[in-house]
């Protein structure tokens, strides 16, 4: 060790003090963030034989968890439903929060109060918000049902109908989370130099075209950020589904497999964990990790190319 330090210009004492300042953080990081990833990888090649001794009671099964995963209809279904969720919630969320930002970015009076109102739900617990929505969506007497009745539309019970359960959850989550995107959009629109808009005005560019050609290209990084974090969050989304559809929503029969519409990867992983298939659940989570790392890397590339 000593030789390593002698090569650099930093003294041993300096290193010692620096490291001891980092030590508390480092210890927690190693035990609860770094080691779990390594342990997950090890676990995914094993079957847990003794639940009371999850370190000793491991039986090596090689890649069997992964081959099983590959042929597991329920797993691929969960991936598909996660993509469905992401494909609905991310674009809708981006459009909605961008609209809010456009309305609030100018010199509108009371803009601060509006921002507070839109942002507030974002800091609240997803699970509790989901529980609140079970009241609003409850059928046949919930208020959402009654409102649709009022305008003369007959709708099925939203959370327990295959076609509507996912959109219903997306609607609830969009209203909850829009404030975050809004704040990011406002911050990045405020960073656009006013002179660009003035120049465009002199050239006779209309209000809408100004946004089309100036605002949107310049807020692309924010959109990309929301897409990437949204996708990664979708892969481990759990509480909104558990809160609104505890068992995975309306069931449908898929070639002899009973699958739930809202049994996304987070829900599926939780179920396998609860039924104590720890090795298999670890394999699932490792595949999810690889998927989200791939997404992150691709998006970094995209950002750098700009």
């Amino acid at each position: 060790m000593k030789r390593l330090f002698r090569d650099t210009s930093i003294s041993g004492r300096e290193n010692l003090i620096s490291f001891s300042l980092i030590l508390p953080f480092l210890i927690i990081f190693c035990i609860f963030l770094l080691y779990p990833i390594i342990y997950s990888l090890i676990l995914s090649f094993h079957r847990v034989t003794d639940l009371y001794d999850v370190f000793g009671g491991l039986k090596l099964v090689g890649g069997r968890n992964y081959t099983k995963l590959f042929h597991d209809v329920e797993f691929w279904w969960a991936i598909l439903m996660t993509l469905y969720y992401a494909a609905l919630s991310i674009p809708i969320g981006i459009v909605f929060s961008f609209l809010l930002a456009v309305f609030l970015v100018g010199r509108i009076k009371g803009s601060r109060i509006f921002r507070t109102c839109f942002f507030l739900p974002f800091v609240l617990d997803v699970f509790v918000v989901a529980i609140v929505w079970t009241l609003l969506y409850s059928s046949p007497y919930g208020i959402v049902m009654k409102l649709f009745e009022l305008i003369g539309l007959k709708i099925p019970p939203l959370l327990s109908t295959p076609a509507t359960s996912m959109p219903a959850i997306v609607a609830a989550m969009t209203l909850k989370n829009a404030g975050f995107g809004m704040i990011l959009f406002i911050a990045s629109i405020n960073n656009i130099p006013q002179s660009l808009y003035e120049a465009a005005s002199i050239d006779g560019v209309s209000g809408f075209a100004k946004h089309r050609y100036i605002t949107i290209p310049l807020i692309k990084p924010v959109i990309l950020f929301l897409v990437v974090t949204g996708t990664i969050a979708s892969l481990s989304a759990f509480a909104e589904f558990y809160g609104m559809t505890r068992d995975g929503g309306p069931m449908i029969n898929l070639k002899g497999n009973i699958v739930g519409i809202t049994r996304v990867t987070g829900m599926y992983l939780f179920r396998e964990f609860r039924s104590l298939k720890l090795g298999y659940a670890a394999a699932i989570s490792f595949v999810l990790l690889i998927i989200s790392l791939t997404i992150s890397l691709i998006s970094f590339r995209l950002l750098r190319e700009r």
Binding site: L26, F32, P36, F238, F270, A282, S285, L289
Partner: peptide, 29 residues
Amino acid sequence: FFFRNGLFFLFLSAMMVPGMMFMIPQFVI
């Protein structure tokens, strides 16, 4: 200090890992 930037990068890269990933091993520990 020694390995400062490497360690910082290592710490930050944990942000790219989906939260669910840690659930099982953390529970075991």
